[in-house]
């Protein structure tokens, strides 16, 4: 069984429950690792959540001079190992999605680890558990494929046929392939 994180930005209501919940996870040291931002508050109340994509070949790990960012066997990209991290912040600048955070006091980088202690056991991470709008979901890989397919079909009905090249721009991204075989 593959479980993945699935984000649908337009569902977000900006309540930031995911951030409050993130602080509750094991090893998160009462600091949130995810983001909820306004697109532009002057224009609209649209907000969007953002969490780590758990890339297969993470740019953050590639730019780390200390080789401190490790990937678990399940594919979760962990925070920089505290003993290795030299605090250069290359990861925050290398990440295409602006995910890693840095604590200057404690000299360590921390980032979304999909609540490793929960997902390892097949339990939904805190952010997806509490998200009242289902903007963040922890679902089966197949369910995600189904949702994406439906979005593409919908776009066809709307008469806005996506081209082959940009088809995937029209459907929400899925985040973090995760298997707990």
């Amino acid at each position: 069984m593959n479980k993945i994180m699935y984000l649908e930005f337009e569902r977000c209501i900006g309540c930031r429950a995911c951030q409050a919940a993130c602080r509750e996870c094991g090893d998160h040291d009462a600091k949130e690792r995810n983001y909820v931002d306004y697109i532009d508050f002057t224009e609209s109340r649209q907000t969007f959540p953002m969490i780590c994509m758990q890339c297969k070949d993470p740019a953050c790990a590639r730019v780390c001079p200390a080789n401190a960012i490790q990937i678990t066997e399940e594919g979760v990209v962990l925070s920089a190992m505290e003993e290795k991290c030299i605090g250069c912040r290359n990861c925050t600048f290398g990440c295409p999605f602006g995910i890693p955070k840095f604590d200057f006091e404690k000299n360590k980088m921390y980032k979304c680890d999909m609540c490793y202690d929960r997902t390892r056991e097949g339990i939904s991470p805190m952010c997806a558990s509490v998200c009242p709008s289902d903007a963040i979901r922890f679902i089966d890989f197949d369910e995600m494929q189904e949702l994406r397919r439906r979005r593409v079909q919908m776009n066809l009905i709307e008469g806005k046929k996506p081209m082959e090249g940009n088809k995937w721009e029209y459907v929400p991204e899925f985040f973090g392939v995760y298997s707990d075989s």
Binding site: F9, F48, M50, F93, F97, G98, I99
Partner: peptide
């Protein structure tokens, strides 16, 4: 990083 996140959300939406 903030703008990167925003760009991504705008793109997806």
């Amino acid at each position: 990083p903030r703008c990167r996140r925003r760009m991504r959300a705008l793109k997806v939406m």
